[in-house]
Amino acid sequence: SSPEAGHSEQAAESDLYPELAKLKDPFAVLETWNYLHESLDGEATAGLNRFAKQIGIPDIVHSMLSSLMIDRKLLAINTLGNLGDRDGYDAVAPLVDDRDPIVSYWSWRALVRIDVERALSETLVKIEERTDWSPVFVAEILQRIDSDVLSEPLCRLVLDAYDRELEERQMSRLISYLAFAHIFDSADVITRIFTETDQKEVLIACLRLLPDFEPALRPRVREMIRDHRWEVRLQAISTLSRFHEPDDLPLLLEALDDQEWWIRYRAAGTILDLPEFAENGIEPLVNRLPSNFARDMLRQVAAERSLICFKPKPQTLSR
């Protein structure tokens, strides 16, 4: 937008809100108010909200939602989210469908802050539909939501998306968000998808979250160590490393000869975590290994773990 348009917008906003207009930089006040609001909680934020209403902030930010200047629009969206005003929900809701992913994402964040249950009911599907939203940003919002509120609708969304054969990349993202659901809600969803799918990214997402209390799934995990896709093999070994089962040793020794360096490295670390070798050392095993690949990797990882930076630091007692 042109400088003239920006000046005219600011003048109009100043005329409408004389309390803010008295300030040298009213937008700096809004930025500071938001910073304080997200740094505090409890009664302190309630006091900030009372202050905001006294100087007309709710009215000015409603008008800023239609601003052509992206920074002001985002500032208005965030302010309404922090105010938690139910009137602000209806004003922000249409912006979730904005073409700009930044505007739409910040709008969804604001809706969750204003009314989390309504936002989950009406807009949770956006985390599936908006492929332009960063999964890191989505996870940041989801982890702040009470699992008691989030778990059931999130699991339902993931299962429904799977039944509709959602595209692989986005499906794997949805599964990864199940980390923020209750494990007893998500376990059945993950189990079903893991046992049925052959999509690489979906399999990897399931392997990362596979519940430890489902021993019936471990044979399929072991099958994945011989998968033709190295990324799946790597994640399968990482999943097995959580179980610490001596019976997995033959598979792990086989993985020590894998063509992929990372798989050999992860297999060596998993072997060293087995109780037998954690207590007795690895030399007897190293001498039995058939290849230099396997011997070198096992010795390398063992040497790394002997370094001081890999050893747990002793606790310092307070005086």
Rank of each mutant, 00 (worst) to 15 (best):
E9G: 08
Q10H: 11
A12H: 04
A12N: 04
Y17G: 02
E19K: 15
D25G: 00
N34R: 13
N34F: 07
A44D: 11
T45M: 13
G47R: 13
L48D: 01
N49Y: 00
N49P: 00
K53G: 03
Q54N: 12
G56F: 10
I57M: 11
I57P: 06
D59A: 12
V61I: 06
L65Q: 07
S66I: 00
S67R: 01
L74N: 08
A76L: 02
G81T: 07
N82L: 06
N82K: 07
G84Y: 07
Y89K: 01
Y89I: 07
V92L: 05
V92C: 13
A93E: 15
A93R: 14
P94S: 11
V96T: 15
V96L: 03
Y105C: 00
R109Q: 12
R109N: 11
A110F: 00
R113F: 01
R113Q: 10
R118D: 07
L120W: 06
T123W: 12
V125L: 09
R130G: 04
W133G: 03
P135Y: 05
P135L: 08
F137G: 01
F137A: 08
V138C: 09
A139T: 15
A139F: 04
E140G: 14
L142F: 02
Q143V: 10
I145S: 00
I145Y: 01
D146C: 02
S147F: 02
D148T: 10
V149I: 15
V149W: 02
L150S: 04
L150E: 05
E152T: 14
P153W: 02
L154F: 01
R156V: 14
L157D: 03
V158W: 05
D160R: 14
Y162A: 10
E167W: 09
E167Y: 10
M171S: 02
R173D: 11
I175W: 00
S176D: 14
I183P: 01
F184M: 10
S186Q: 10
D188M: 13
T191R: 15
R192F: 08
R192I: 03
T195P: 02
E196M: 03
E196H: 03
T197W: 00
V202P: 00
L207R: 05
L207G: 10
L210A: 09
L210T: 05
E214F: 09
P215Q: 12
A216N: 09
P219W: 00
P219R: 04
R220Y: 08
R220G: 05
V221Q: 01
R226W: 07
H228C: 04
R229Y: 13
V232N: 10
V232M: 05
L234C: 03
A236V: 03
A236F: 12
T239F: 03
P246V: 08
P246R: 07
L252Y: 03
L253P: 05
L256F: 02
Q259N: 13
E260V: 15
W262C: 04
R264P: 01
Y265R: 08
A267Q: 04
G269C: 10
L272G: 00
L274N: 05
L274C: 09
L274Q: 12
E279M: 14
L285E: 07
R288M: 13
R288N: 12
N292R: 11
V301H: 01
V301T: 13
R305C: 07
R305H: 13
T316N: 10
T316R: 15
L317T: 15
R319Q: 07
